[in-house]
C-alpha cells in the first residue's frame, strides 16, 4: 500500500515503547541449517586453532 504523504514519526524508540513480548516467545523448530551453521563455525574454529597454534610464534606449541 502506498500512501501519498509521509507520516510523522518518533525520533527514537525505547524498550518500553516497543511491543516486545514476542521477542522471547515462539521459538522455531531447530532446523538443519542451524546445525550446519553451528557445526561449521566450530569446525572453522578448530581449523583456525590448529593453524594459529602452528603459525603464531607465541603459542604454547612454540
Amino acid at each position: 500500500m502506498a500512501e501519498e504523504k509521509a507520516t510523522e514519526r518518533k525520533e527514537t524508540l525505547s524498550v518500553s515503547a516497543l511491543e516486545a513480548e514476542d521477542v522471547m516467545a515462539g521459538a522455531e523448530e531447530w532446523v538443519g541449517t542451524e546445525t550446519w551453521l553451528v557445526v561449521g563455525s566450530l569446525i572453522a574454529a578448530v581449523i583456525a586453532l590448529v593453524i594459529g597454534l602452528l603459525v603464531v610464534p607465541t603459542s604454547v606449541l612454540h
Partner: peptide
C-alpha cells in the same frame, strides 16, 4: 526504512510503504 515499534516502514517524499514483517513490506 525504519521500524516504528509495530511495523516496518519504508518511505521517501512521495511514498510510504508499511508491513508487519519485511516480507509483507517487500510485497507491498
Amino acid at each position: 526504512i525504519w521500524h516504528d515499534g509495530r511495523q516496518w516502514v519504508a518511505s521517501n517524499d512521495d511514498f510510504t510503504f508499511r508491513g508487519n514483517s519485511l516480507d509483507e513490506l517487500d510485497q507491498n
